[in-house]
Protein backbone atom coordinates (compact mmCIF):
# COMPACT_ATOMS: atom_id res chain seq x y z
CA UNK A 1 0.00 0.00 0.00
CA UNK A 2 1.26 3.43 -0.98
CA UNK A 3 1.53 6.07 1.75
CA UNK A 4 0.90 9.69 0.80
CA UNK A 5 1.32 12.93 2.70
CA UNK A 6 -1.29 15.67 2.28
CA UNK A 7 0.90 18.75 2.00
CA UNK A 8 -1.49 21.58 1.04
CA UNK A 9 -0.20 24.66 -0.74
CA UNK A 10 3.41 24.72 0.41
CA UNK A 11 6.33 22.32 0.29
CA UNK A 12 6.75 20.47 3.60
CA UNK A 13 10.16 20.25 5.27
CA UNK A 14 12.14 17.23 4.00
CA UNK A 15 11.91 15.45 7.38
CA UNK A 16 8.09 15.42 7.13
CA UNK A 17 8.32 13.17 4.10
CA UNK A 18 9.91 10.26 5.91
CA UNK A 19 7.89 7.12 5.28
CA UNK A 20 5.84 8.62 2.45
CA UNK A 21 6.17 7.77 -1.22
CA UNK A 22 3.71 10.32 -2.66
CA UNK A 23 2.62 13.88 -1.99
CA UNK A 24 -0.92 15.17 -2.29
CA UNK A 25 -0.74 18.93 -2.83
CA UNK A 26 -3.67 21.35 -2.93
CA UNK A 27 -6.97 20.86 -1.16
CA UNK A 28 -10.26 19.04 -1.62
CA UNK A 29 -12.06 21.82 0.23
CA UNK A 30 -10.65 25.20 -0.74
CA UNK A 31 -10.06 26.39 -4.29
CA UNK A 32 -7.55 28.98 -3.10
CA UNK A 33 -5.19 26.53 -1.47
CA UNK A 34 -3.30 25.73 -4.65
CA UNK A 35 0.46 25.34 -4.90
CA UNK A 36 2.17 27.27 -7.68
CA UNK A 37 4.28 25.65 -10.40
CA UNK A 38 7.50 26.39 -8.53
CA UNK A 39 6.26 24.56 -5.44
CA UNK A 40 4.99 21.66 -7.53
CA UNK A 41 8.43 21.40 -9.15
CA UNK A 42 10.05 21.29 -5.71
CA UNK A 43 7.61 18.62 -4.56
CA UNK A 44 8.13 16.56 -7.72
CA UNK A 45 11.86 16.37 -7.03
CA UNK A 46 11.00 14.49 -3.83
CA UNK A 47 8.10 12.22 -4.86
CA UNK A 48 5.29 11.74 -7.38
CA UNK A 49 2.61 14.40 -6.89
CA UNK A 50 -1.19 14.28 -6.88
CA UNK A 51 -3.05 17.60 -7.02
CA UNK A 52 -6.24 17.79 -4.94
CA UNK A 53 -8.99 20.17 -6.11
CA UNK A 54 -12.26 21.36 -4.61
CA UNK A 55 -15.64 22.80 -5.57
CA UNK A 56 -14.81 25.68 -7.93
CA UNK A 57 -16.27 29.01 -8.97
CA UNK A 58 -15.73 30.17 -12.56
CA UNK A 59 -12.59 31.99 -11.50
CA UNK A 60 -11.38 28.94 -9.57
CA UNK A 61 -12.15 26.63 -12.49
CA UNK A 62 -10.06 28.76 -14.84
CA UNK A 63 -7.13 28.94 -12.39
CA UNK A 64 -7.19 25.22 -11.56
CA UNK A 65 -7.55 24.13 -15.20
CA UNK A 66 -4.58 26.29 -16.21
CA UNK A 67 -2.43 25.04 -13.34
CA UNK A 68 -3.21 21.39 -14.04
CA UNK A 69 -2.54 21.78 -17.73
CA UNK A 70 0.82 23.50 -17.16
CA UNK A 71 1.90 21.14 -14.36
CA UNK A 72 1.00 18.01 -16.33
CA UNK A 73 2.83 19.23 -19.44
CA UNK A 74 5.96 19.74 -17.30
CA UNK A 75 5.51 16.30 -15.74
CA UNK A 76 5.07 17.80 -12.26
CA UNK A 77 1.84 15.94 -11.45
CA UNK A 78 0.53 12.58 -12.59
CA UNK A 79 -2.85 12.57 -10.86
CA UNK A 80 -5.69 14.96 -9.98
CA UNK A 81 -8.39 14.55 -7.33
CA UNK A 82 -11.62 16.04 -8.70
CA UNK A 83 -14.53 17.32 -6.63
CA UNK A 84 -16.30 19.44 -9.22
CA UNK A 85 -18.36 18.15 -12.17
CA UNK A 86 -17.20 21.17 -14.16
CA UNK A 87 -13.51 20.24 -14.04
CA UNK A 88 -13.95 16.87 -15.75
CA UNK A 89 -14.41 18.13 -19.30
CA UNK A 90 -11.24 20.31 -19.36
CA UNK A 91 -9.21 17.39 -18.00
CA UNK A 92 -10.48 14.97 -20.64
CA UNK A 93 -7.94 16.19 -23.17
CA UNK A 94 -4.96 15.55 -20.87
CA UNK A 95 -4.29 11.96 -21.94
CA UNK A 96 -2.33 10.00 -19.36
CA UNK A 97 -3.35 12.12 -16.38
CA UNK A 98 -4.87 9.85 -13.71
CA UNK A 99 -8.12 11.04 -12.15
CA UNK A 100 -9.52 10.25 -8.73
CA UNK A 101 -13.03 11.10 -7.55
CA UNK A 102 -12.73 13.32 -4.48
CA UNK A 103 -14.57 12.90 -1.22
CA UNK A 104 -17.36 15.32 -2.19
CA UNK A 105 -17.97 13.81 -5.61
CA UNK A 106 -17.92 10.34 -4.01
CA UNK A 107 -20.92 11.28 -1.87
CA UNK A 108 -22.86 11.33 -5.16
CA UNK A 109 -21.06 8.61 -7.12
CA UNK A 110 -21.02 6.00 -4.37
CA UNK A 111 -24.82 5.80 -4.23
CA UNK A 112 -25.87 6.65 -7.80
CA UNK A 113 -27.14 3.87 -10.06
CA UNK A 114 -24.04 1.70 -10.69
CA UNK A 115 -24.61 1.17 -14.44
CA UNK A 116 -24.59 4.89 -15.15
CA UNK A 117 -21.74 5.47 -12.71
CA UNK A 118 -19.48 2.90 -14.36
CA UNK A 119 -20.09 4.47 -17.77
CA UNK A 120 -19.41 7.91 -16.32
CA UNK A 121 -16.14 6.76 -14.73
CA UNK A 122 -15.06 5.21 -18.01
CA UNK A 123 -16.01 8.28 -20.05
CA UNK A 124 -13.91 10.60 -17.91
CA UNK A 125 -11.12 8.13 -17.11
CA UNK A 126 -11.63 8.10 -13.34
CA UNK A 127 -9.85 5.11 -11.90
CA UNK A 128 -9.69 5.79 -8.17
CA UNK A 129 -11.60 7.42 -5.34
CA UNK A 130 -10.90 9.21 -2.07
CA UNK A 131 -12.79 8.35 1.09
CA UNK A 132 -12.64 8.17 4.88
CA UNK A 133 -15.79 6.08 5.25
CA UNK A 134 -15.66 2.27 5.31
CA UNK A 135 -19.11 1.66 3.83
CA UNK A 136 -18.46 4.16 1.08
CA UNK A 137 -15.11 2.48 0.40
CA UNK A 138 -16.90 -0.84 -0.15
CA UNK A 139 -19.37 0.69 -2.60
CA UNK A 140 -16.61 2.47 -4.50
CA UNK A 141 -14.54 -0.70 -4.70
CA UNK A 142 -17.56 -2.48 -6.18
CA UNK A 143 -17.44 0.09 -9.00
CA UNK A 144 -13.91 -1.08 -9.80
CA UNK A 145 -12.17 1.93 -8.29
CA UNK A 146 -8.85 1.92 -6.44
CA UNK A 147 -9.32 3.42 -2.98
CA UNK A 148 -7.31 6.15 -1.29
CA UNK A 149 -8.05 6.11 2.44
CA UNK A 150 -7.82 9.41 4.35
CA UNK A 151 -6.96 9.29 8.04
CA UNK A 152 -7.22 10.14 10.88
CA UNK A 153 -9.81 12.84 10.17
CA UNK A 154 -13.19 12.25 8.57
CA UNK A 155 -15.03 14.83 6.48
CA UNK A 156 -18.19 16.27 8.07
CA UNK A 157 -19.05 19.56 6.36
CA UNK A 158 -17.65 22.06 3.92
CA UNK A 159 -18.39 25.72 3.33
CA UNK A 160 -17.46 28.02 0.46
CA UNK A 161 -17.50 31.01 2.85
CA UNK A 162 -14.00 31.21 4.28
CA UNK A 163 -14.27 30.85 8.08
CA UNK A 164 -10.91 32.55 8.52
CA UNK A 165 -11.21 35.52 6.16
CA UNK A 166 -14.99 35.64 5.79
CA UNK A 167 -15.46 35.96 2.06
CA UNK A 168 -16.35 33.90 -1.04
CA UNK A 169 -13.47 35.12 -3.17
CA UNK A 170 -11.11 33.04 -5.31
CA UNK A 171 -8.13 34.99 -3.98
CA UNK A 172 -7.13 35.23 -0.34
CA UNK A 173 -4.41 36.03 2.16
CA UNK A 174 -3.94 32.37 3.18
CA UNK A 175 -4.86 33.20 6.77
CA UNK A 176 -5.66 29.54 7.41
CA UNK A 177 -2.10 28.45 6.62
CA UNK A 178 -0.83 26.18 9.36
CA UNK A 179 -3.97 26.71 11.44
CA UNK A 180 -6.26 23.99 12.69
CA UNK A 181 -8.95 25.03 15.15
CA UNK A 182 -10.13 22.38 17.59
CA UNK A 183 -13.76 23.27 18.31
CA UNK A 184 -15.30 22.00 21.54
CA UNK A 185 -18.82 22.14 22.86
CA UNK A 186 -20.21 20.08 25.77
CA UNK A 187 -23.12 18.93 23.59
CA UNK A 188 -20.80 17.19 21.14
CA UNK A 189 -19.12 13.92 22.06
CA UNK A 190 -16.07 14.67 19.96
CA UNK A 191 -14.52 18.01 19.02
CA UNK A 192 -14.62 19.24 15.46
CA UNK A 193 -11.46 20.27 13.68
CA UNK A 194 -11.62 23.25 11.33
CA UNK A 195 -8.97 23.47 8.65
CA UNK A 196 -9.31 25.54 5.47
CA UNK A 197 -13.06 25.46 4.75
CA UNK A 198 -13.80 22.02 6.15
CA UNK A 199 -15.02 20.62 9.46
CA UNK A 200 -13.53 17.24 10.30
CA UNK A 201 -13.87 14.73 13.13
CA UNK A 202 -11.19 12.34 14.42
CA UNK A 203 -13.22 9.38 13.19
CA UNK A 204 -11.36 7.82 10.30
CA UNK A 205 -9.40 4.75 11.33
CA UNK A 206 -5.65 5.09 10.94
CA UNK A 207 -5.72 1.40 10.16
CA UNK A 208 -7.33 1.37 6.72
CA UNK A 209 -9.89 -1.26 5.75
CA UNK A 210 -8.70 -4.19 3.61
CA UNK A 211 -8.12 -3.70 -0.09
CA UNK A 212 -7.00 -0.09 0.12
CA UNK A 213 -4.42 1.08 -2.42
CA UNK A 214 -3.25 4.24 -0.70
CA UNK A 215 -3.26 5.80 2.75
CA UNK A 216 -3.36 9.61 2.76
CA UNK A 217 -2.31 11.36 5.97
CA UNK A 218 -2.72 15.05 6.67
CA UNK A 219 0.66 16.61 7.42
CA UNK A 220 1.09 18.64 10.60
CA UNK A 221 0.53 22.30 9.87
CA UNK A 222 -1.01 21.67 6.46
Amino acid sequence: MEKALLSGRLAPPPAALKGFTRLVAGSEYCQNKLPDLKTLAALRRRAPVTLATSILTDEGLAAVSALISAAFRRDLIDEVIVNDWGLLQPLKKLTGLALSAGRLLCVELSVAEPGWTKKFLLEYGITSAETDDKKMAERLKALGLEISWHAPHAFKAVTTYCPFEKHFKAKCGFSCEGRALKLKNPHLKKPLLLVEKVYLTPDASVKPPAGISRLVVRGKGF
Binding site: T57, G60, D84, G86, L87, T160, Y161
Partner: peptide, 26 residues
Protein backbone atom coordinates in the same frame (compact mmCIF):
# COMPACT_ATOMS: atom_id res chain seq x y z
CA UNK B 1 -22.84 20.70 -6.89
CA UNK B 2 -23.23 23.21 -9.71
CA UNK B 3 -20.98 26.16 -8.90
CA UNK B 4 -19.55 27.10 -12.32
CA UNK B 5 -20.14 27.18 -16.07
CA UNK B 6 -18.43 23.82 -16.58
CA UNK B 7 -20.75 22.12 -14.11
CA UNK B 8 -23.75 23.81 -15.75
CA UNK B 9 -22.59 22.49 -19.10
CA UNK B 10 -22.33 18.98 -17.60
CA UNK B 11 -25.88 19.11 -16.26
CA UNK B 12 -27.09 20.95 -19.36
CA UNK B 13 -26.08 17.93 -21.45
CA UNK B 14 -28.37 15.89 -19.20
CA UNK B 15 -31.29 18.06 -20.22
CA UNK B 16 -32.00 20.41 -17.32
CA UNK B 17 -34.24 23.42 -17.91
CA UNK B 18 -33.60 25.33 -14.70
CA UNK B 19 -30.87 25.58 -12.08
CA UNK B 20 -31.52 26.43 -8.44
CA UNK B 21 -28.26 28.12 -7.51
CA UNK B 22 -26.44 26.57 -4.55
CA UNK B 23 -27.25 28.61 -1.46
CA UNK B 24 -23.55 29.35 -1.00
CA UNK B 25 -23.07 30.64 -4.53
CA UNK B 26 -23.24 34.40 -4.48
Amino acid sequence: LCFNRGALEFFGRLGINRLVLPMQLM
